[in-house]
Design a protein around this nucleic acid. Sequence first.
DNA 1: CTTTGGATCGTCT
DNA 2: GACGATCCAAAGG
Length: 181
Amino acid sequence: MIDLASEFYDRPVLDVAPQLLNKVLIAGGRSGRIVEVEAYGGEDDPGSHAWRGPTPRTELMFGPAGHWYMYLSYGVHWCANVVVSSLDTAAAVLIRAVEPLAGIDEMRLARGKVRDRDLANGPGKLTKAFGFGQEVNGDLVATSAVRICDDGTRPPTRPACTPRVGLSKDRAPDRLWRFTP
DNA sequence: CTTTGGATCGTCT
DNA sequence: GACGATCCAAAGG
């Protein structure tokens, strides 16, 4: 189990996103394999929070690579993004789903009455299953309570590329920036 | 199985 | 004042 180095994140978002597949998310004694991600660009991407330039909420996206950018979705769910390339301004990868590996009892407790397969198969579900939120904003490589590690499993050689989920019309639906193994 | 509507509140206009 | 990078329960086939 090796923490990904900051160099891993400091690359174009379309390189980093598919390579996060099959990596392992670790937090609070729980772990899970990343099985769905989405890439978001910066000011040139109508689907991105950073589209209209920096705001108080999105300033983290304009910061250094290898940091968490957490945001509250629909006033209810915390969603976890990893900021990537400092050259591609304000790009980030949304972690959309993980497959539980360890700490499954804690996840069941955090998630309530759902089937095991539904414990962490959504961006809001996984943060609740792992029990973290806004407080992890900041450097994920050096000091974070939420880490991303490589356990030796290779990324898929040919990941599936599909449209991003939940974007309203005209938000660059032509960009197939959702990746699954 | 699919569809529908409610929850809920920070953020930006 | 409107709108989400969502989730879930309930209702209908």
